[in-house]
Computed example of a mutant assay.
Amino acid sequence: MAKKKFSKDWVHQHINDPYVKLAQQKGYRARAAFKLSEILELEKINVKGKRVVDLGSSPGSWSQYVREQMVGPGGVLDGRIIALDILEMEPIAGVEFMQGDFREDEVLERLEKSLVGQKVDLVISDMAPNLSGVAAADSARMQHLCDLALEFALAHLKTDGVLIVKAFHGSGFSQIVKLYKNHFVRVVERKPKASRDKSAETFLVARDLKN
């Protein structure tokens, strides 16, 4: 009974969520687009003319938003977006999508071939694990995804590049922040207004790789 009530509450909250309505109006695939837009605005990150990799991109709202910001005069795309996900993603004009697990060498090789040896300006990751409800296990899974995003960024980011990654407050969070601070000059936490109050999610913005 409790589960039924919970799902009814969630549906009610979702339907009445202003960001859900706004996403529908603007044609974004998910309300998550507004989380990224706020972070980019707060951090004064301009994506025009930049090379961006979107890890765990499906359904594609972050790639949609980045693409929108890259469109210049006459509708010409000024920049490059490569999106990766294990799941399928409906095509987005101007976004190069690769389906596969970026932890696998074959997928990384495909990406590296596509980049032709060029480094990336921005790596974004809204990846989250399938949550089990067991706090310790979920924290470990989230930490693993943050480690993978960091590993990817260290191999592919420009020295003055930026990594934006989703994390969860809780067990292991301070270790993630410490690890990121070992590699980046500046690491800040951002909790966008579009993140639900009850959600433990927060986003780490890591800038400028240490030598």
Rank of each mutant, 00 (worst) to 15 (best):
residue 139 S to Y: 01
residue 45 I to Q: 03
residue 109 E to S: 13
residue 104 E to K: 15
residue 188 V to G: 04
residue 8 K to I: 09
residue 123 V to P: 01
residue 205 V to L: 00
residue 28 Y to A: 01
residue 165 V to Q: 07
residue 22 L to I: 02
residue 119 K to H: 04
residue 53 V to Y: 05
residue 97 F to L: 13
residue 104 E to M: 14
residue 1 M to H: 12
residue 2 A to Q: 10
residue 38 E to W: 06
residue 209 L to M: 03
residue 112 E to W: 00
residue 99 Q to P: 05
residue 100 G to C: 10
residue 183 H to Q: 15
residue 32 A to N: 03
residue 83 A to S: 14
residue 113 K to A: 08
residue 135 A to Y: 05
residue 98 M to G: 00
residue 14 H to M: 14
residue 89 M to R: 13
residue 2 A to T: 10
residue 61 S to N: 03
residue 174 S to Y: 07
residue 60 G to R: 07
residue 6 F to T: 11
residue 208 D to Y: 11
residue 185 V to Y: 05
residue 182 N to A: 02
residue 74 G to L: 05
residue 86 I to Q: 03
residue 35 K to E: 01
residue 62 W to I: 11
residue 65 Y to E: 10
residue 35 K to N: 12
residue 149 A to H: 00
residue 121 D to H: 14
residue 40 L to N: 09
residue 42 L to R: 15
residue 5 K to Y: 07
residue 60 G to S: 12
residue 72 G to L: 09
residue 92 I to A: 06
residue 76 V to I: 13
residue 111 L to W: 05
residue 4 K to Y: 11
residue 119 K to P: 00
residue 211 N to S: 14
residue 12 H to L: 00
residue 51 R to T: 13
residue 195 S to H: 08
residue 66 V to Q: 02
residue 187 V to E: 04
residue 31 R to F: 14
residue 44 K to S: 02
residue 153 A to T: 08
residue 40 L to G: 02
residue 151 E to P: 02
residue 157 L to V: 04
residue 122 L to N: 01
residue 186 R to Y: 08
residue 29 R to H: 10
residue 86 I to R: 13
residue 186 R to G: 00
residue 56 G to S: 09
residue 20 V to I: 05
residue 155 A to K: 13
residue 178 K to T: 11
residue 198 K to Y: 03
residue 119 K to Y: 07
residue 51 R to C: 06
residue 60 G to Q: 12
residue 49 G to F: 10
residue 32 A to V: 11
residue 32 A to M: 04
residue 141 R to A: 12
residue 207 R to K: 15
residue 4 K to W: 10
residue 167 A to S: 14
residue 65 Y to F: 15
residue 142 M to P: 01
residue 79 G to I: 05
residue 100 G to E: 09
residue 74 G to S: 02
residue 116 V to F: 03
